[in-house]
Simulated assay, not measured.
Amino acid sequence: MNTLFSPLQEFWKKGDKLLLLLCLLASAYGVALIYSATRYNENDREVIIQIIAILLGVVVYILCTFVDFQLFVEKNWKWLFVGSVLFILLLLTPFGSNVGGNRNWLDLPFLPINIQPNEIDKIPFILLLALLITKIQDQGRDIGSVLSVLQIGAYTVFMLGLIAAVCGDMGMCVVYTFIFVTMAWSAGVKLRWFVLAIGAVVIGFAVLWIFVLPNTAAWDSVYFIKRIRVLFDHSFEPLGVGLQQTRSLLAIGSGQIFGKGYLQGSMTQSTTGALPARDTDFIFAVCGEELGMVGCLALLLLLSLIILRCIWVARNANSPFHAYVAMGMAGMLLIQVAANVGMCLFVFPVMGLTLPFFSYGGSSIITLYAAMGIVSSIKARNLPSWLRDRSGQ
């Protein structure tokens, strides 16, 4: 019996219990919203799958706490890289399925749910990028030098190109890019590099928007361009590309301060004129309609605390590798929260990004708990303050 409970006792001593508690609170809140969002179809399948995924996620969280990921990645980085690439390439097989215009999902006959490789691959991407940055620094090279920036940038561009070519998922490309920016900035890459990159993107997009698209069929045919255009002109295709965000904004606005009441949202509970993707991409709108501004602030507070906890762990990490990994996890959460909420408020384009811990998705929730389990592992290996001071960290 002692042998059975000894891992749990070890986790209780060293693991990040506060982070796990915050994740569980957010997940429980999310399950309540998913139940409301799917109640109209009189089927609890999504709720059951979400609860099972959360339970599995907790197990993964605890197991990850015991792994020294720096040692693991240093020994297995080649396999981790090859595996992450092959995982995405599996989408080109008959098991890959196209949903919503993106080839994101693997439909494996031996699994009860679909899995999203580019969602799961965020973890090896963060681990490998952290290893690459630390190797450059261990060699005594300036991480802000041209060669160093090109080196870490090349790996990132490779992954972005792979995801864009195989999946066509621009939203996930934004997430990977922001993870890179967060980790590179944390490592000491100078601000001028980011200014140059942003400037190049803005100029390129402006040229495309002003001189190229108006003279081509792409202006009216490329769906992603329409999603951006509708942000500046809400009257553009209000029953087409703008329909999802228009309804989301109406639902959030109708909730006002305290909402219409749990399970009482007219658009959430309706089958006609209803919120689209209400259990996934637009779960925030469900919260806004039924629980109002107070419910939305509570949701954002929970997610903010999780992100701040990741940053705290990064600041107290016992090695640069661990610090970069924890910051990468924080950046991953931050961009997904900002993009999803912005999408629901009609200020960001629809990119198919779910709200962490709240949106329905088995592979997503397990991946999130694995990511937070890695942060817990970093916290479990923190140096005590007096030793950290002596080591100069």
Rank of each mutant, 00 (worst) to 15 (best):
K78F: 13
Q139R: 14
I52H: 11
Y155A: 09
G171M: 04
C173T: 14
L129A: 05
A53T: 10
M172Y: 03
G144Y: 02
V146I: 11
G100V: 01
V175Q: 03
N102A: 04
D107F: 02
L108C: 07
F69M: 08
G161P: 11
M159Q: 08
L147N: 10
I152N: 01
G153V: 12
Q139V: 09
R141V: 15
L56Y: 05
G171K: 11
I62V: 15
I62L: 14
S145W: 02
L91T: 06
V67H: 07
A53C: 08
T134L: 07
L111C: 03
N98W: 04
I52L: 14
L92K: 15
I163T: 11
L160Y: 02
P109E: 03
V174Y: 07
T93A: 08
W79I: 02
E119L: 14
E74F: 09
F81A: 06
I136N: 08
G96A: 11
F158E: 01
E74R: 15
V175I: 15
I54R: 07
L127T: 06
S84F: 11
W105S: 10
L129Y: 07
K75C: 07
G144W: 04
S97T: 14
I49A: 12
L127H: 10
V166F: 05
G57C: 10
D142K: 07
L91H: 05
I62M: 13
L150Y: 11
M172R: 03
Y155C: 07
V146F: 13
L91C: 13
A164K: 08
V58M: 13
S145Y: 03
L131D: 05
V58F: 13
P112V: 13
D169I: 14
C167F: 00
D68R: 01
W105M: 07
Q137P: 00
I143L: 02
F72A: 11
M172S: 14
V146A: 07
I113H: 08
F87Y: 06
N43H: 09
L131E: 06
V82F: 05
